[in-house]
Amino acid sequence: MIFFELFYTFFIIGLFGFGGGYGMLSLIQTETVVHHQWLSSAEFTNIVAISQMTPGPIGINAATYCGYTAAHNAGFSTWMAMLGSTTATFALVLPSLILMILISKMFMKYMNVPIVQNIFAGLRPAVVGMLAAAALLLMTQENFSSPITNPWQFGISLFLFVITFVGTKYMKINPIRMIGYAAVAGILLLY
């Protein structure tokens, strides 16, 4: 049944999703779109956009929306789709809850031990790689169009991407303002 698959899939994602929500996005996409085919690529892109706009951690928001959409796409009613949403969210959070309870006292005792420091030093590059993978997975035709299909939209998308990157990274413009500016520019330039 899909609910057991949702629980198992999101439990594994929660168990190996180092780097927070953005690090989990590539795992969530691989499992929900490619492996289980519960969602289409366009649905996943919309879920990521909604997850970023709503309050709360992006990984948990994405799991909530993916669970609902997967159950809904499988033909379940709205109430059962909400159970899929709850199942995916709980399964994603459960490994972190268990691990934090088990290691909280141990970490404070052994955090200055060289082996523990080396483990965290080894995890840092993996986290950066997972964040980069999440960014690259979102650079799809649904988000940027293509130079062949719609050159104007592709050019505007690249322009907005570069301007937003420069604005937030180098000019230190508040990311919330940049989202608003990009939305206004997208409305004016693409419609």
Rank of each mutant, 00 (worst) to 15 (best):
Q37S: 14
Q37A: 15
Q37L: 10
W38L: 05
W38S: 05
W38A: 05
L39K: 12
L39D: 01
L39Y: 03
S40I: 02
S41N: 14
E43I: 11
F44L: 06
F44H: 02
T45C: 05
T45Q: 03
T45R: 00
T45K: 08
N46K: 12
N46R: 12
N46W: 04
V48E: 02
I50F: 06
I50Q: 04
S51G: 15
S51F: 01
Q52P: 04
M53Q: 11
P55Y: 02
P55G: 12
I58Y: 02
G59Y: 06
G59K: 11
I60Q: 09
I60Y: 06
N61F: 07
N61K: 10
A62C: 08
A62I: 10
Y65T: 13
Y65N: 07
C66R: 08
G67Q: 08
G67S: 11
Y68I: 09
T69W: 02
T69P: 03
A70C: 06
A70Y: 01
A71F: 09
H72T: 11
N73C: 07
A74L: 03
G75L: 05
S77H: 10
S77K: 13
T78H: 14
W79H: 11
W79Y: 10
M80T: 13
M82A: 12
M82R: 12
G84R: 07
G84D: 00
